[in-house]
């Protein structure tokens, strides 16, 4: 059972009475289900959004809408719809270049030295939004000659909508900002449409990237283990306690010696269990200790 699921059940049991659904209750709902927290400045927009969805559902009072959401599973239609409204899908190719440089120059060579020859690497872009980050990882892995294409990139996001976009792999000209010409020429295909120009990820790259819609808090249920987890600009939306929960969950998804790369300034003050920080300027990263690896598996 995921933490999110448990929390959601708790929320169902301790559901407030109809009359008094406060901001606190809404925040708890988001916190328990997704770990999301809101800044004070976002509160009016949040309440407006809730109001909009409530009306669209044809409900007159917030309590009824709240009850409806509580009755739904985490993947329920109404909940997903509401969630779409609070998520920020900002992303771009090779956003925070330093992290990608570390991947290319340190992480991949290190993993290749550590792993058995011919090992297959698994990279995960956790919170991939419209997929540019996952494709960026794939571009680097693809261009890495020593790796020889033995890798899979996974991209996940809680929003189903952006996952659809990511799977399509078609981007407008503005999304290409920050993408080196070499990568663009090799991995993107220019396509003319009725409305203008679009750039489509070439099938060769697209088939190496798998996308799925999952809640990161339930990442511990997500069976594969990865050599690299890329989680950028995600934790900034999470409440401190949720950050700790999430990082512990992500740590269990790393193979021994695997790397967790966070966005600049992200992450907790003390590093998660079983992870040791890597010291590269401008990059926030952890490596799963190898000692753990040498312990016999249960």
């Amino acid at each position: 059972m995921t933490m999110g699921g448990n929390a959601a059940q708790d929320a169902r049991i301790g559901r407030p009475r109809r009359e008094d659904i406060s901001l606190q209750d809404w925040c708890s709902l988001f916190l328990n289900r997704c770990g999301l927290t809101f800044r004070n400045a976002q509160v009016p927009a949040l309440m407006q959004l809730i109001d909009q969805h409530m009306r669209a559902r044809g409900l007159a009072d917030a309590a009824a809408y709240y009850a409806l959401l509580c009755d739904e599973r985490d993947s329920g239609v109404e909940w997903s719809e509401l969630l779409e409204g609070v998520l920020n899908h900002e992303t771009s190719f090779f956003r925070h270049q330093a992290s990608f440089d570390v991947l290319k120059n340190i992480v991949l060579p290190d993993l290749l030295a550590e792993r058995a020859k011919g090992a297959f690497l698994s990279l995960w872009s956790a919170g991939c939004s419209t997929g540019q980050e996952a494709y960026s990882l794939a571009m680097i892995a693809m261009a890495h000659e020593e790796l020889g294409g033995r890798f899979t990139v996974w991209g996940s996001d809680v929003s189903r909508r952006v996952i659809e976009t990511a799977r399509r792999g078609c981007y407008g000209p503005r999304a290409l900002t920050g993408l080196a010409a070499a990568y663009r020429n090799r991995f993107l295909h220019e396509k003319r449409t009725e409305t203008g120009v679009e750039y489509e990820v070439v099938p060769e790259l697209r088939e190496r990237v798998r996308f799925m819609s999952i809640n990161l808090l339930s990442a511990a249920d997500f069976s594969p283990r990865h050599d690299v987890i890329f989680c950028h600009n995600v934790l900034i939306y999470f409440a401190p306690e949720a950050v700790t929960r999430l990082l512990n969950a992500l740590a269990t998804r790393l193979r021994p010696g695997g790397y967790l790369l966070l966005g600049p300034g992200e992450g907790p003050g003390d590093h998660p269990k079983g992870l040791e920080p890597i010291h590269v300027s401008g990059v926030r990263g952890f490596r799963r200790t190898l000692q753990t690896a040498r312990e016999p598996r249960p």
């Binding site: 800044r39 920020n88 900002e90 503005r174 600009n233 934790l235 900034i236 300034g265 003050g269």
Partner: peptide, 27 residues
């Protein structure tokens, strides 16, 4: 469209700065 993009980016920046500010408080 650009304004929407920019506002999303700034929104994320705001979240990031907020996060840093929280962390700085902890520090």
């Amino acid at each position: 469209a650009q304004a929407v993009d920019a506002s999303v980016a700034i929104e994320e920046m705001a979240a990031s700065i907020h996060y840093v500010s929280e962390n700085a408080s902890v520090s």
